[in-house]
Structures are given as C-alpha cells and as structure tokens.
C-alpha cells in the first residue's frame, strides 16, 4: 500500500502535466479515433526513430553487400572512376591554361613601330605626344639601336645581324593603355596607328584573344566530355543496379505484398548506388593523384628548360570534395532511374 502511493501520485501528476499531455496528444487521438480498427498504431516519434534507424541499417547492409563481392564492386567503381577521371583531368588542364591567360592579361600592351625615315628627335616628339594622351598609362621609348641590341640578345643572332650594314629596325614605343579590356585596347591601337610618324600599331594581345577563344573551345569540350561521361556513370550504375534488382526480385515481390512502399523497396538500391559513386570518386581521386605525380617530373623538366617553374595543378580539397559529391549524386541518380524503371516491371504474382 505504502509503496503504491507514490506511484499513483506520479501517474496523476503525469496526467495533469499539460506539456506531457500535449506531446502525447497526437498519438492518443489517433488511437481513439481508430479504436474499431485492430491495427496497431505506431506513434510518430517511434516511426521517425525507426525510419532513421532503418536508413542506417540499410546503408550498412548495402555497404556489406558490396564488400561481399569485392571484385565485381571494385570493377564497377573502377568504371565509374575512369569515366570521372577524363573530364576532371581535362578540367584541370583547362584550369592551368586559364592560369597562364590571367597572368598574361595584366600585360595587355601594344607596340608602335615608327616610320624609319624619322630622325631620332622627331621620333622622340611622337613618343612625347603619345605619352600625353589620357588613354595611355605609360610608354617606353626604344630607339632603333636599342631595338637591334635587344633583338640580337634575345635571339642570339649577333653574328648574322652584325653583317647588316644598316639597322633594319625602326624606333618603337611600347604603350600600356589605361583601359585593359581587349576592345578599348583595340580602339587605342587604331587611334595611335593613325598618328603621323607611326607606321604600325601592333596589339600584343591579339594572340591572347586567340588563346581566350581556344580556352572557350576547351571549356566546351570539357563540358561535352563531362556530359558524356556523366551519362556513362549513369549507365554503369544503372546496369549494376538493374542486375541487383533482378537478383533480389523475389524479396521485392514479398515485401511489396506485405505493404512495403516504393521508397522502402528503393532504399537499399539507392544506398548501393551512392556507395558505388563514393567508391568510384575515391578511386578517381587516386587515379588523378597517380597521374599527376607520373606527369609532373617530365613537365617540370620541360619547364626548367625554358627557365621557368611549373607545377601541375591538383584538384585541391574543395575540388576533391566536389568530385566526391558529384560522383555520389550521379550514381545515386543512376540507381534511382534503374530501380524506378525495374520496379514498375516487377509485379508480385
């Protein structure tokens, strides 16, 4: 008797506690409204926890299923990895090209070749006039003699040129424009080329423009490859998942018959797809790293022969994470498409 008293008290206090009652409301209402049905009611909270738990369990189970057949899983992942490596490598190559591009962009400049008939003082006058223009940031005057000197040094043609009696080079002015976008530079070049005493204004960025166009072409090629190989990933995963669905056909029929939703049936296959994608992504990263270290020695040698230093760009942390996310999502999507298609075919008999 004594022992029971506090328990009763606790019970009544629970009944009177509005917050606790509120939490239970949804459940008690549902039970009472369906008292006629003998079907068991499961509270939302328990359903939610069971859902989370089921996800964890299915994720683990599908991972174990992959590990049970390591060779075929590895082959699928390798196929995914290869499909990912090519566009990724192209993207990196393009990135390094753009790096060169942006470095050169700062040096947008033009050279004015002056009339060779001008005397040195006349040439200086032209240079002064150019320097005073608002659109010109800075100029550098190069006399004909200096030009020849530089030419000889840079090409190592001392002997050949020393045989010339006259200096064939005109005096020139290197002009750095204020506005560095290609259009403004082009306009300035036309304007300066029309000045008296100027023979020709040559925009040094003309080839840069070409490079930029090539870069755009490269970008499109990368996009096309990424699209194609992305499709490849979808097909690889789709086919693998199709076989998995086929091999578990009976199980799918049974769980469908006893009330499994499509989501429930799909879940293990979606996780398998995601695991394939993650594994493929990791393998792709490994392939990229191996390829980079394999190429870096010869590329460094080439760069050194030009007296420069060049490091092959890697994906970096963000790029790697992006690659993993992309491959996982892509494979998940492939699995989703395959399961959706084949679930429609599987009707319990």
């Amino acid at each position: 008797m004594r022992r029971e008293a506090p328990r009763r008290q606790a019970e009544s206090s629970r009944l009177n506690n509005p917050r606790r009652n509120g939490r239970q409301d949804g459940r008690s209402e549902r039970v009472s409204s369906r008292q006629g049905a003998r079907n068991y009611q499961i509270s939302f909270d328990s359903r939610w926890r069971a859902w989370v738990r089921h996800h964890r369990q299915v994720a683990g189970e599908s991972a174990r299923r992959l590990l049970k057949r390591p060779l075929s899983s590895l082959l699928t992942m390798l196929a995914i990895a290869i499909a990912l490596v090519l566009p990724a490598a192209l993207w990196l190559a393009l990135g390094s090209a753009q790096l060169i591009d942006s470095r050169l962009d700062d040096t947008a400049q033009m050279t004015l070749y002056l009339d060779p008939a001008l005397s040195e003082s006349q040439a200086m006058d032209v240079a002064d006039r150019v320097r005073q223009l608002d659109t010109v940031a800075s100029t550098q005057f190069i006399t004909a003699a200096e030009g020849l000197d530089e030419f000889q040094h840079s090409l190592g043609l001392d002997d050949a040129l020393s045989m010339l009696q006259d200096n064939p080079l005109p005096a020139s002015i290197v002009v750095v424009p204020v506005q560095r976008d290609p259009e403004a530079a082009q306009q300035l070049a036309v304007q300066l080329g029309a000045l008296p005493g100027v023979d020709e204004a040559r925009l040094d960025t003309a080839w840069l423009e070409r490079l930029r166009q090539l870069g755009e072409l490269g970008q499109r090629v990368v996009l096309a490859f990424a699209g194609l190989f992305g499709l490849g990933v979808l097909l690889v995963v789709g086919n693998t998942i199709r076989l998995a669905v086929e091999s578990r056909r009976e199980e799918i029929e049974v769980v469908t018959l006893i009330g499994a939703t499509h989501a429930f049936v799909r879940r293990p296959f979606l996780y398998s797809g995601a695991w394939f994608g993650l594994g493929g992504g990791v393998l792709a990263l490994m392939l990229l790293t191996i390829g980079r270290s394999w190429l870096s020695a010869p590329i460094d040698a080439v760069a050194r022969s030009y007296g420069s230093h060049y490091l092959l760009p890697g994906l970096g942390f963000e790029g790697s994470v992006l690659l993993l996310i992309c491959s996982t999502l892509l494979s998940w999507l492939g699995a989703w498409l395959a399961v959706g298609r084949h679930l429609a075919e599987i009707k319990p008999r």
């Binding site: 328990s46 069971a50 089921h54 049974v254 769980v255 009330g259």
Partner: peptide, 13 residues
C-alpha cells in the same frame, strides 16, 4: 518481423 519493420516499428518494440 518484416511487416513490422516495413511499418516503421523499432526492432525493440
């Protein structure tokens, strides 16, 4: 247990 798991019941329940 399968029908119960499908309905979203915790294994303990």
């Amino acid at each position: 247990a399968l029908p119960l798991i499908i309905q979203g019941m915790l294994p303990a329940e």
